[in-house]
Design a protein around this nucleic acid. Structure first.
Length: 257
DNA sequence: ATGGCTACGATCCGTAGA
């Protein structure tokens, strides 16, 4: 089974690229972030014509997440239960016995800001939710835009970014608290090219200079880690005209490794 | 120089992203 995540930064603008990417990559499940639209304007029919059913937790202008699947998806759950949040950042479902949680974690804007405090509260709630999910779903995958670069090797210029939002110690501790529930960063289960990132600033030719951050991740439980055959970033869509600033991330799960 | 792009909603700029 092939699982993927992509922050498309507006599904309306990116729909042609999304359809092209689905046709080429053929993931079984794709978690989308930053739809920036709600259900009435969600391109459900176009995606169904491409072979993908959608479950959507939409929001106008900001946020919004969806799970696309070629396989039957059940037990759909929106948001983080028990965490009051206006922002639509989470949707979950079960595919062939694997629990899939799609997340768009808060940006945080700047260390010390209200949005930063919200980000840390949000991560604490996510940690509790994932710990709970793992009890009932040992086969758990959490995919999306985490807005945290876990280590300095995930940052193109660690000196320039030192202490900034996305790399600050409290954010990295919040990331490690997710792993401590029993999840692995699938990307680090494998040898990887140096300076692999998943996001590049639109400004200052960020992609051309490979001035990026690795902030889009796929976390998998021990049971799935044993079956994980690969974990990669697909930079190809970032090279297109009018791209998302994020690239898709992809894992392949096979029979026991 | 704290800028620089991009998307959105409502205009012809402000907010947000990262």
């Amino acid at each position: 089974m092939k699982l993927a995540a992509w922050n498309v930064n507006s599904i309306k603008v990116r729909l042609p690229q999304l359809l092209d990417w689905l046709a080429g990559a053929r993931p079984d499940v794709l978690c989308l972030q930053e739809l920036k639209t709600e259900e009435p304007k969600y391109p459900r029919a176009e995606l169904e014509a491409a072979g993908y059913a959608s479950v959507v937790n939409g929001q106008k202008t900001y946020n919004g997440v969806a799970i696309l699947s070629r396989l039957p998806l059940s037990e759909v759950a929106l948001d983080i239960p028990g965490f009051a949040d206006e922002q639509k950042r989470v949707i979950a479902g079960t595919v062939e016995g694997t629990r899939v949680v799609c997340v768009y974690c808060p940006n945080g804007q700047a260390v010390g800001s209200d949005k930063y405090a919200y980000k840390l509260r949000w991560f604490a709630a996510l940690r509790d939710y994932l710990a709970e999910q793992l009890k009932s779903h040992p086969r758990l995958a959490v995919l999306g835009d985490f807005n945290v670069a876990p280590e300095d090797r995930d940052v193109h210029d660690p000196k320039a970014w030192e202490g900034q939002v996305h790399v600050s110690l409290p954010e990295r501790e919040a990331w490690r608290a997710l792993l401590a529930t029993g999840l692995k960063d699938s990307f680090r289960l494998f040898e990887q090219p140096e300076k692999t990132y998943s996001w590049w600033d639109y400004r200052m030719m960020g992609f051309r200079r490979n001035a990026g951050l690795r902030i889009d991740h796929i976390l998998i439980s021990e049971a799935l880690a044993r079956e994980c055959a690969s974990s990669t970033v697909d930079k190809a869509p970032r090279k297109l005209e009018r791209p998302s600033d994020h690239a898709p991330v992809v894992v392949e799960l096979s029979a026991a490794r």
